[in-house]
């Protein structure tokens, strides 16, 4: 156990709640059951850590093993830091037959080819997700184990989620991903958030969707007695319609938990009766950011309650339709409706 290994062990153990320590260590599989029994989990963390460290020394564990524990922690707590979604493009014929062993070998090989010092760890999670931990170094320095990049890829899908990646390492990672998954390119999906699961659900449409229908849903019973049955009915119908449209745009039930959506507006001024600006050719620039603890739920409520007009504008429904939360809105041409273009990478 060198200093770095101890450091990673300390940082990881600190983050794990006491209740989950035993379970996490068990799944790590580098400390035997009998050794685990000697540990007292009710001790203060720093005392516990000393005891654990001596067990690690006893078992001759090194950085490689400790980083595995760190990975287990991250896999069990995926909603941390900021995840950015990327999308692989133009799958080759073999793309669908890529399996774990092959991917593991190729990914490592492609990365090692361009970087002398890099340490890669790949682990498969239960739900088909492949977790990759990359510690980057350069030609002269050993990999920095304390600032690893985490990558999650679902095999046979075009989606990759990346966390803590510096722009310096981006090209290397992208190239290795493209080659080992048998695609021809990769692009930024303009979707980010702290919940990995939410990003995945949004992109893979794994949430309760509502589709446009001509049949109205049965009216729910309401407690308040309306002043006049017809007025009440009309109100209820309108409210129901708004809710239907809100759900069509943002999903029903529990929706993926996004925190923000950003729109860079580069459209012409469209405000109320101001001829000077409306006649102007240059765009009226601004950046709009929506923030909430659960953005899609807030927007759904916003439309359903009438704080926003229904039907939902394509700008907002694009969050779910296109699976993005970063947009640049420009004018298509003179007089044309706004159009969405992505940020150039």
């Amino acid at each position: 156990m060198d200093d770095i290994a101890t450091d990673i062990l300390r940082r990881t153990i600190r983050k794990i709640p006491v209740k989950k320590l035993q379970d996490t260590l068990k799944s790590w599989e580098h400390i035997s059951t009998s050794q685990l029994e000697t540990l007292d989990f009710s001790q203060p963390k720093w005392v516990f850590l000393e005891n654990l460290r001596s067990l690690c020394e006893e078992n001759d564990l090194n950085v490689k093993h400790v980083t595995e524990l760190e990975m287990i922690y991250h896999i069990r707590n995926p909603n941390q830091g900021t995840w950015h979604a990327c999308q692989l493009l133009e799958a080759e014929d073999e793309a669908l037959s890529v399996e774990l062993t092959q991917f593991r070998e190729q990914f490592k090989a492609h990365l090692m080819e361009v970087m002398r010092h890099v340490s890669v760890k790949i682990k498969k999670h239960e739900d088909q997700a492949i977790w990759i931990r990359i510690a980057w170094g350069d030609n002269f320095n050993k990999p920095n184990q304390l600032k690893p990049t985490y990558v999650v890829h679902y095999l046979q899908t075009p989606y990759v989620f990346v966390s803590k990646l510096s722009s310096k390492h981006k090209p290397y990672l992208y190239q290795a991903l493209v080659l080992s998954t048998r695609h021809s390119s990769i692009k930024d999906a303009h979707l980010s958030g702290s919940s990995l699961i939410a990003l995945r659900d949004l992109l893979m449409r794994q949430y309760q969707q509502v589709f446009p229908t001509n049949q109205s849903r049965p009216l729910q019973e309401r407690n308040a007695l309306p002043s006049h049955p017809n007025i009440g009915k009309e109100h209820a119908e309108l409210a129901e319609k708004r809710l239907q449209m809100a759900c069509e745009a943002f999903g029903d039930g529990t929706v993926p938990k996004l925190e923000t959506a950003v729109y860079r507006l580069e459209t012409k001024y469209k405000g109320n009766g101001n001829d000077t600006l409306i006649d102007r050719d240059e765009p009226f620039k601004g950046v709009v950011q929506f923030t909430s603890t659960n953005l899609l739920e807030s927007l759904r409520h916003c439309v359903a309650s009438g704080m926003a007009d229904a039907p939902v504008t394509p700008l907002l429904s694009s969050i779910t339709q296109k699976g993005r939360n970063y947009f640049v809105i420009t004018e298509k041409g003179p007089g044309a409706a706004s159009q969405m273009t992505g940020r150039k990478i």
Binding site: V288, Q289, F290, T291, S292, L295, M307
Partner: peptide
């Protein structure tokens, strides 16, 4: 809204 929605316009 529920949960509340913050909108910033720069």
């Amino acid at each position: 809204t529920d949960p509340s929605l913050d909108i910033s316009y720069r």
